[in-house]
Design a protein around this nucleic acid. Structure first.
Lengths: 120, 120
DNA sequence: TCAAACCTTGACATCAATGTGAGGGCAACG
DNA sequence: CGTTGCCCTCACATTGATGTCAAGGTTTGA
């Protein structure tokens, strides 16, 4: 699929799809004429990238954790070095901290809304 | 407490504490000489701001949800308009989406690490 | 009283994510 | 053929969060 179609299907501007490629998050094939050629699975991949970006992770981190996100079934551990593992653990813990913070605040907002409602 | 002490206790540079004030997230009192005067509760408040910023929320959003975060006990609903409520609900749902995305990815990383460990 | 260590505001620099436009190739359809 | 609409790369602008520096007032302690 061409970049325009992917952009339309994901809602992500073509400009950003090129940017994500430049950042190493996406590696579409190239047709003979130089056009990018995106496979079907990349639709989900783009969604995943967007979710992580929206959640505040920088592309540098996303690049590091992307290999794990296809499910651990098809692990291709290209000598998973101890530093690599340590990095992943650190990132996972950082993400976990984010989750806890957001959860707490989401619940606070929910409580607030509920309290408002009982007054109304 | 002066800005330097708050910076040291929270680990947030004074520059940012001034920025958060400029963004309406923090409103310290002012001493006679113009120095900012931070009260004890602002230590926690800064932590909360940092968590939300780290989780990817922009200051504009944080400003909107901060009023709810002191616990719904002391709600001072300055005519909580319907638009205000709708905004809060929207933001809460957006945060919830972030939580789900991050949770999914955190678990994926955890699984990946576990799989690596069983091979090692 | 002088110096060091704070504080103030303001301007400018940086980085990542994103927008936007220029200049040009390719493809499909009249 | 030419026009229209996609694609390419390259480059510059912008926004938000942050760093850094300058010029100056305040407080504290030798």
């Amino acid at each position: 699929m061409l970049i325009g179609e992917l952009a339309e299907r994901t809602g992500v501007p073509a400009r950003l799809l090129r940017y994500y490629e430049e950042q190493g998050l996406l590696t579409p094939a190239r047709a003979a004429n130089g056009y990018r050629d995106y496979g079907e699975p990349l639709v989900d991949r783009v969604g995943q990238i967007r979710g992580l970006l929206d959640a505040g992770l920088p592309t540098r981190i996303i690049r590091q954790i992307l290999p794990c996100l296809d499910g651990p079934r098809e692990i291709m551990f290209p000598d998973a070095t101890p530093e690599m593992i340590a990095t992943l653990e650190r990132e996972r813990d950082a993400i976990d901290a984010r989750v806890r913070c957001l959860t707490r605040n989401r619940d606070a907002i929910t409580d607030y809304l509920a309290a408002l409602r009982t007054r109304a």
